[in-house]
Computed example of a mutant assay.
Amino acid sequence: MLSVYQTQILRGRCLLQKTFSNNLSSNPKVLNTCKVNIRQLSSKTGEDNKLECIYYGPLKPQIRAVKIFSITSSFAGLIAQPIIINEASKIGSTSLLVALCSVVGFFTFVTPLLLHFITKKYVTEIHYDPETSTYKATYINFFIAPVTIDFKAEDVVVPDIPGMFTTMLAKGKPLFIEARHFSDPIYYAKIMGYDKPLDFKMGNIEEKDTNNNK
């Protein structure tokens, strides 16, 4: 025969099992939430796996290092600028004060902006989604954070006269890429539109005839 203590333990276990099963049956959202989370995780990993890296800019580490050094020196210049101005004002030379402010201001403000102007078009990576034929280009912004832009081949415009550090325009955004850094030259040809039929831009024949008659 079971003791009174063992009988109470069995009753407690049966009560807990009954309560747990009733909660699951009355609130199926708990199981559904687990299923949704598993599906979301699997979909994210699937999206990451289907992207293929077709381009890598070799200057990415150098650009990041130079920008970090430039921004760090700018913050240091901002902190040291009041001290330098105070010490220069004690000397009493106006020309020395103007020269020091010009040098400190140049390295504090002009250098980071100049570096950003030169490197903001440089593409560090391009990933390709074969299912949607979409390209994902990555470049570095002013605060050294990666920024991506999604585009397709039909969104690319190759200017007749490319600007400085500009190879193409993707949705109006000027970008700089190099053909030799693609994993396959076919990707570069598709992005630049070299696989399309040539347009020699012969002009309108009727307009030429009217101009000749004049």
Rank of each mutant, 00 (worst) to 15 (best):
Y122D: 10
R180N: 09
M192K: 05
I71A: 08
V147A: 05
D129G: 04
G46S: 14
S70R: 02
K136G: 08
T45C: 15
Q81D: 14
A179V: 03
E207R: 05
F75P: 06
T94G: 14
K35Q: 14
F106A: 06
A179Q: 07
N212V: 13
A145P: 05
N212S: 12
T167V: 02
V4M: 11
V4W: 09
V98F: 09
T134L: 01
K67G: 14
L10M: 10
V4Y: 12
L10R: 02
Q17L: 14
P130T: 01
P28V: 02
I126E: 00
G46M: 12
K67I: 04
G193V: 00
P185F: 01
K29D: 10
L97M: 07
R11A: 14
L59D: 10
T138A: 07
N212C: 15
Q62W: 10
F69I: 05
I161E: 09
N204W: 05
M1P: 11
L198A: 15
S26F: 08
I79E: 05
S73T: 03
K44R: 12
I177A: 01
K136D: 07
L16S: 14
P159W: 01
S25Y: 11
I205L: 10
G163M: 02
Y194E: 11
T134S: 09
K171V: 02
A179T: 06
K190W: 05
S42C: 11
G12N: 14
E206S: 11
G57V: 00
V36N: 15
V103L: 14
K208E: 10
V104E: 07
M168Y: 02
P162Y: 01
T148C: 07
T94C: 12
E131G: 13
E178A: 09
R11H: 09
F176Q: 10
I68E: 14
P146D: 04
E178K: 08
L115S: 02
I71T: 04
A153P: 03
N213C: 12
T108G: 08
T45K: 12
T7M: 07
L97F: 06
V156A: 03
E131H: 11
N212F: 12
